[in-house]
């Protein structure tokens, strides 16, 4: 009986985190991912908090680098890696994003946001890097 109750309770606990649907704001504190399907919307739901809406970064005692006009974005592998794993002060923000969202935002920062690099990133590329 102990085992049974435990399993049921754990299952209930796991199902608690309702998925965030494609809306412009998370619907619950337990959201596993940020909302959005378009690259720009996704950027403005998470990346812009640090890299700023126009991608120019910010500086205080510490700083967030600019992504606009950033030559490091020439290939997609580097931003994919940064999003999934983070680096130093950048957290692994990919933990709260789906593969599709990561692909879309990589395309957005590489094609727009003051950059004009070629090539489409897909969710499969992201999955391969996870």
């Amino acid at each position: 009986m102990k085992r049974h109750l435990a399993q049921a309770a754990v299952a209930a606990a796991l199902s608690l985190a309702a998925p965030a649907f494609a809306q412009d704001f998370v619907t619950t504190s337990a959201a596993k991912t940020i909302p959005g399907t378009e690259g720009k919307d996704i950027y403005n739901a998470i990346c812009s908090g640090c890299h700023m809406p126009d991608g120019t970064g910010a500086t205080g005692a510490g700083h967030y680098p600019a992504l606009a006009g950033n030559a490091m974005l020439e290939g997609p592998d580097y931003p994919i890696h940064m999003i999934i794993h983070g680096q130093k002060a950048m957290p692994p923000v990919g933990d709260v994003m789906t593969d599709d969202q990561i692909a879309a935002v990589v395309n957005y920062i590489r094609h727009d946001l003051g950059n004009a690099f070629e090539g489409e990133t897909t969710a499969a590329d992201v999955a391969a890097a996870r």
Partner: peptide, 10 residues
Amino acid sequence: WGAAAYQFNA
């Protein structure tokens, strides 16, 4: 915390 905090931050 988590995804909600990231979005509030943005």
